[in-house]
Simulated scan of single mutants.
Amino acid sequence: MRTTLGGHDDVPGFAAAYREQSERFPGPPAGWQPVHTVYVPAGAFGPGTAREWGDAALVLLERHLPAASLAEVFGLPRDLAADIRDRVARKLAAEPVEDLRVDFEDGYGVRPDAEEDAHAVAAAESVAAAHGDGTLPRRWGPRVKSFADGDPGRSLRTLDLFLTGVVDRAGGLPPGFTVTFPKVLMEAYLRQFADRLAAIEAGLALGGGALRFEMQVEAPQTVLFLQRSPDLVASLGGRLAAAHFGVFDYTAACGLPPAEQRLDHPVCDHAREVMRTTLAGTGVELSDGSLAAAPASDATADVHALWRAHATTVRHSLRNGFHQGWDMHPSHLVSRYATVYAFHLATYAPYAARVAAWQARSEAGGGVLDEPATVKTLTAALHRAESALDGTEPDDTGL
């Protein structure tokens, strides 16, 4: 057969471009991702914190949410209500917290150095104790103070005391560690923090890359440098594990009044879209923010009102492809798990049918003609659903 080009494999510059693609875009996050992160002020954290949150949530579930009420509170089909309530109760009893941060930042405040030192050491002791008795959440770590506060030494001293204490007491670094780095107003702070992590890692004789961190996107300045830094993730040497959106700092920085500082405000949607597009394919996980509210009282009406408000924010995140968020109060565990389970149960069967039809090269129900990219997304959604519903950690999230 006659062709025009002499060598189709001879594309000048292709090898270098493909190598750069592989470095910058290794693919989506692999494996299990928690559905939430629980934040606990360092002064209130102890080895039994996760269990205490679960017990408090179970009390609320039993007191305020019989199966007959669940469908009405969360707007769910009645045929799913009993199953979802049972799943929530079992989750709260077995693993109430999937990801936990010992907070030394906004939830903790500015305290005398000696007090923060003591809390860092005590937190390390509590982590080691929880690890020893098997109650340490699958993901865990501290949230340290921001470099933007002008005192990186305080942030790093707390992290050093915490990590050194954990390693000394636990005989190594328990799996699941990450540290949250907040209020990243300057891109340079990320590289400086990654460099210090490498130094602590070497000093503690941990394996290369053992210490990873998540950045918080809490200011317009952060959104701007994300947009103009296409090689940011690669430049951090694999240490950036996740990006978490901070709704209240972000909306305040945008000048929104308190009543508009909410997760579903358009300015938040814009910030999340920047996070999504600039971090797509880099292997960095994405997490949404929180609802800063607790039940106004122990009255059932007030508890239900909180659950409805929280469920609305969780659904907004899920519909927009953000499958993780922050939980700030034990009551949030009930609405978090109920909403996540309902979301996945409602879509699992139709998604599975579409994947099966595509694999069989037949037409899906309703005349849907799926493209390979859509089927890959459907398959990833099924893996994520199985992980959330069964607590498993899938080996991959694609075809």
Rank of each mutant, 00 (worst) to 15 (best):
S235V: 01
D149Y: 11
V167L: 09
G237Y: 03
P175T: 12
L173K: 00
L232F: 07
R228M: 02
A129Y: 03
A219G: 08
G237R: 13
R157T: 15
V144A: 14
Q216S: 05
V223F: 02
D117E: 10
A128R: 13
Q192W: 13
R196C: 08
R154F: 13
F181D: 00
L204W: 05
F213N: 10
E187S: 15
T135V: 01
I200V: 15
R196M: 10
F147Y: 15
A188T: 14
A124F: 00
R157D: 04
G153M: 14
L224N: 06
M186S: 11
A234V: 03
A202Q: 15
L156H: 10
H119A: 03
F147H: 11
P230Y: 03
G237S: 13
T180H: 02
L236K: 08
G176E: 09
A128M: 07
A128Y: 04
D117L: 14
G207N: 06
L163R: 01
V166P: 04
R191C: 00
G172R: 00
R191M: 00
L185P: 02
V166A: 01
L211F: 09
G132R: 13
R143V: 03
H131F: 10
A148H: 07
G141F: 11
V217L: 14
A205E: 12
L159E: 07
A210G: 04
D149R: 15
D117A: 12
D149K: 06
V233P: 04
R212K: 04
P142H: 13
I200C: 04
Q216A: 07
T135E: 01
D168Y: 02
E115F: 08
P174F: 00
S235A: 14
V127K: 09
L211D: 03
S126H: 13
A210P: 06
F193L: 09
A194L: 09
L173E: 03
S126W: 06
T222C: 12
D133V: 14
A114G: 06
A170W: 07
L163W: 07
K145Q: 12
L136M: 06
K183A: 04
G171H: 02
A198M: 00
A194G: 05
A114W: 08
R143D: 05
G153Y: 07
A188W: 05
D168S: 14
E115Y: 01
E116R: 15
L236N: 06
L226Q: 07
V217I: 12
L204V: 13
R154L: 15
V179F: 05
A148D: 10
Q216D: 01
I200G: 02
V179A: 13
D168V: 12
L206V: 10
L159Y: 00
L211K: 04
A130F: 06
R228Q: 08
F213M: 14
T164K: 08
V223Q: 01
E218A: 05
A129V: 03
R143W: 02
D117I: 14
E116K: 15
D168Q: 12
P142A: 02
E187F: 04
T164C: 13
G203F: 06
P175A: 14
L185V: 12
A199K: 12
